[in-house]
């Protein structure tokens, strides 16, 4: 009787140990497998959506930095659907894409709109695809005219609060030169038009843009992914998508009219906020009190 009981206890212990071992093994197996298996090659698809703000630029810079540091990612596709936005944010995004394009193939795919600052962003791309009805172009800069300086404050200099019309026009012309110059730098071999014609800031349908050199070809996102993978020499690859960040915060909303309103602390001398001008690379109607446009139809 004692021997039978001892054997049963031993069997129970063995079974429990076996079950525990299987459970632990099942938990650890994929971790170990992932740790030791080689990572597959990947093509990263990064979205550039909506109005381009400083937050959009922050997000894209961060995404592209991750892409550059991730050895499994061999190529990038920019999935663009944006009318542009802040000039400084657009410029930052252009530079971030430019840095990435020096390390791996970057291909862009225009979904609906790839205008102004969004077009600036994808200029370093090795290839730009657009669908026939998408809108591309609007290479120009705009900004509000200087506001008359108020007479109820003391300033340390005549241009402390605002600026002159000449100075504002010169600033916008400077930004325009940077934008148009970048277009010519990246796409002069493809473009069928002169620098002055580009500076008209027209938008073109994807169909027309594929003829005048603003884009390289008519094509969908999948075609852009295939192109990027091919440029990177990939036969088997995974696609990883980076979704756009939420960029509809209150601050961004206030940026949309071209004058970012920065709320400061309630002041004992009566200031409720500060209105600062912002230069825009955006296509479409913008509500301004008054504006200077760097091109005919920016």
């Amino acid at each position: 009787m004692v021997s039978k009981s001892s054997n049963a206890t031993r069997k129970t212990v063995y079974v429990l140990a076996l079950v525990a071992a299987v459970l632990v093994g099942a938990f650890l197996a994929p971790i170990v497998s992932d740790a030791v298996a080689p990572e597959p090659d990947r093509v990263a698809v990064i979205s550039v959506d909506g109005y381009i703000s400083s937050n959009t630029a922050d997000q894209l810079e961060e995404d592209l930095e991750e892409v550059r540091e991730n050895e499994s990612i061999k190529a990038v596709v920019l999935k663009v659907d944006s009318p542009g936005g802040s000039a400084s944010a657009s410029e930052r995004m252009y530079l971030a894409v430019n840095r990435t394009a020096k390390e791996m193939p970057v291909v862009s795919s225009v979904q609906g709109m790839g205008a102004s600052g969004a077009y600036y962003t994808m200029l370093p791309s090795e290839h730009i695809y657009a669908t026939p009805s998408s809108m591309v172009g609007s290479v120009g800069v705009r900004g509000s005219k200087p506001m008359p300086s108020g007479g109820n404050e003391i300033r340390t200099g005549p241009d402390k609060a605002s600026t002159t019309m000449d100075q504002r026009e010169a600033q916008i012309e400077t930004l325009k030169r940077g934008f148009v110059g970048s277009v010519m730098k990246h796409r002069s071999d493809e473009l069928t038009m002169s620098r002055q014609e580009v500076a008209y800031a027209k938008v073109y349908t994807g169909a027309r843009a594929s003829q005048n050199g603003y884009v390289d070809d008519i094509g969908t996102l999948q075609k852009a992914i295939d192109h990027a993978a091919n440029e990177a020499g990939l036969d088997n690859y995974e696609v990883v998508e980076k979704e756009p960040a939420n960029r509809f915060g209150i601050f961004l909303f206030s940026e949309r009219n071209g004058n970012a309103t920065v709320v400061v602390e309630k002041s004992p001398v009566g200031y409720d906020g500060v209105r600062t001008s912002e230069f825009l690379m955006v296509y479409g109607q913008v509500q301004y009190e008054d504006e200077v446009i760097g091109n005919v139809s920016a």
């Binding site: 002159t164 000449d166 100075q167 026009e169 010169a170 600033q171 012309e173 400077t174 030169r177 940077g178 110059g181």
Partner: peptide, 8 residues
């Protein structure tokens, strides 16, 4: 910058 800057 020298090619970009416009001065009134």
């Amino acid at each position: 910058a020298s090619e970009l800057v416009v001065t009134p």
